[in-house]
């Protein structure tokens, strides 16, 4: 079985080095190599500043990579048209309060990706948007609303709907639960799991809640200082962590409250 997403020697470098007046490049992320199969959930964990966000932003196309390739179904993302790229990889931004335009209605926000990337007529677009809103558990009435009229969870649902409206293969969720408390966070996670069950999309998560990570993910990548130090299935990572950083991450995030 071929992998849905394959990352091949991906690098991100910034100009300039740590030393004064010396030219050169500073490695932010890389080399990165991993694969993700269809319908699986991959979680990236790591300390702050370990390059998790840079990595997923490169995959989503927010920032360009310095070198290396990203393949989806064995097509390099760099050679795909912008529309195909949009249809295959979508990103859910961290905080919907700032990622949803306050001056656009939910309907306009959701129809923008359809208008720009598909040839659907207005009626078909509306049908697709309503279907997507139902998928994330919102009523069609919300089309007329502006983002600041919705609650935090509903805003998250709209952000998920914006990612799902094009029926992508891979959806990236960059620490989306950090702005919600854990009970509402689980509501969002359940929506995502339901979507994954229905549509068979692959998810790439970044999260700091280890219990949640254990619950949802099939595969875990541990990053430190821009490189992958461990890449294994969830059971292997949690039962027999190999590296010190992994052990620390797991330990620090699982306090035993009963003591």
């Amino acid at each position: 079985m071929t992998a849905l997403l394959r990352i091949d020697n991906l690098y991100k470098q910034y100009k300039g080095s740590k030393f004064f007046l010396s030219s050169g490049f500073r490695n932010a992320v890389g080399p990165i190599n991993f694969t993700l199969e269809k319908g699986k959930i991959l979680t990236i964990i790591g300390e702050n500043g370990s390059g998790k966000s840079t990595l997923v932003q490169m995959i989503a196309g927010v920032i360009p990579s310095t070198s290396g390739d990203i393949y989806i179904n064995d097509h390099a993302l760099a050679t795909m048209t912008r529309q195909d790229r949009c249809k295959s990889v979508r990103m859910i931004f961290q905080n919907p309060k700032v990622s949803l335009n306050p001056k656009m209605t939910i309907g306009k926000i959701l129809s923008a990706p359809l208008e720009l990337n598909t040839d659907l007529t207005a009626a078909q677009r509306k049908q697709q948007i309503i279907a997507t809103l139902e998928l994330v558990g919102l009523l069609p009435d919300y089309l007329q609303f502006y983002p600041n009229m919705l609650s935090a969870v509903q805003q998250h649902q709209v952000a998920i709907a914006r990612a799902m409206v094009l029926n992508p293969d891979v959806v990236i969720a960059d620490s989306i639960l950090s702005t919600l408390d854990i009970s509402l966070g689980f509501k969002i996670v359940n929506i995502l799991l339901k979507i994954q069950e229905k549509k068979g999309v692959s998810f790439i998560f970044i999260s700091h809640h280890m219990n949640l990570v254990r619950h949802i993910s099939d595969q875990i990548i541990v990053m430190q200082k821009g490189i992958i130090v461990e890449n294994n299935t969830t059971d292997n990572i949690f039962n027999s962590p190999q590296k010190m950083i992994t052990k620390n991450l797991l330990k620090s995030q699982q306090p035993d409250y009963r003591k």
């Binding site: 989503a60 196309g61 927010v62 912008r82 529309q83 949009c86 990103m91 931004f93 961290q94 905080n95 700032v98 990622s99 949803l100 335009n101 306050p102 923008a112 990706p113 720009l116 990337n117 914006r162």
Partner: peptide
């Protein structure tokens, strides 16, 4: 730098 602008750019606007 605002995320809603980045999101629109990602949509291919």
């Amino acid at each position: 730098n605002k995320q809603y602008v980045v999101a629109l750019q990602l949509d291919g606007a």
